[in-house]
């Protein structure tokens, strides 16, 4: 092979490789990502049971019910709509009533959201960004002083 042919072969090989990697990336972006919803988004645009989503909002006051062992039920609200969530596991340190929370999971056929992970904020100044933005849009956001 001449120098030029060799170079072409190398470039072609690299392009095929990159093409494959790009295709894989797009496939993964389509399949392996989950969308974020607030409760009232779901009223407008319901999702199928079993489809993984992230559900965010505030933990409704008085809604936390501890069941046997590690089962917990609570409701996530954006002050317009409320969705019941069941979760089996340890809640994060800063999980409290009327605090921002993001849960990840899917609806069961009965319309209850079964979460397999619950994220709360890391410290008192931190509100999950998605939640804060959405609440601001809905006008129910209150600036709280830190500390």
């Amino acid at each position: 092979m001449t120098r030029k042919q060799k170079r072409l072969a190398v470039i072609a090989g690299a392009l095929v490789f990159l093409g494959g990697a790009t295709a894989l990336t797009f496939y993964a972006l389509g399949q392996r990502t989950s969308y974020f919803y607030m409760p009232s988004d779901l009223a407008e645009k319901p999702v199928e049971p079993g489809q993984r989503i992230r559900l965010g909002g505030l933990v409704e006051k008085g809604s936390i019910q501890r069941g046997q062992g590690t089962e917990v039920e609570f409701a996530v609200t954006d002050q317009e709509k409320t969705i019941k969530v069941v979760y089996n596991g340890l809640l994060p340190d800063l999980f409290r009533e009327e605090q921002g929370v993001i849960t990840e999971g899917a609806f069961d056929p009965a319309g209850v959201f079964v979460a397999d992970s619950v994220l709360a904020k890391h410290d008192e100044n931190y509100m999950p960004k998605e939640v804060a933005d959405s609440l601001k849009e809905k006008g129910v956001w209150q600036e709280k002083s830190g500390g």
């Binding site: 990697a21 894989l24 990336t25 496939y27 993964a28 972006l29 399949q31 392996r32 990502t33 989950s34 969308y35 974020f36 992230r54 990840e104 998605e130």
Partner: peptide
Amino acid sequence: FVGTLYPLALEALTGEKISVGAPFFNLT
């Protein structure tokens, strides 16, 4: 790079919020 910045870009462009987490990275 794509997995980290795609959600930011998507939100800036369309306002849609997605999370790209371990399943994406484990696969790619």
